[in-house]
């Protein structure tokens, strides 16, 4: 089971949408996962495997266990799928 965070400024609006799109990509990839939405400061304090966020927050997230992945356009499903697959590939080699 991998733990995934979708992160935005308040953890209310944008990240919820990001979550539902990430879910689709993760389902397609066929992995066992648990996904949560959060804001940047909360993302720092909890352990996770993968964190997806926008470019603005990427440098604010200093999570010890997780790798951080930037999604430029939250409405672009192709970009989200590609980023998710890349992130999952990175996990396997660890």
């Amino acid at each position: 089971m991998i733990k995934v965070f979708a992160v935005c400024g308040m953890g209310l609006g944008t990240s919820v949408i990001l979550k539902s799109r990430l879910k689709k990509a993760l389902d397609e990839a066929g992995v066992d996962y648990d996904i949560e939405v959060t804001d940047a400061s909360a993302a720092n304090g909890q352990s996770a495997d993968l964190i997806f966020t926008s470019a603005e927050f990427a440098d604010k997230i200093k999570n010890k266990t997780a790798s951080v992945h930037v999604i430029k356009n939250f409405t672009d499903r192709d970009e989200i799928t590609a980023t998710v697959n890349e992130a999952l590939a990175g996990l396997d080699t660890d």
Partner: peptide, 14 residues
């Protein structure tokens, strides 16, 4: 068309 939270336009002019 999905209508999204305001930060969706922030990357266009940070």
């Amino acid at each position: 068309l999905p209508a999204l939270d305001i930060p969706i336009v922030f990357p266009y002019a940070p």
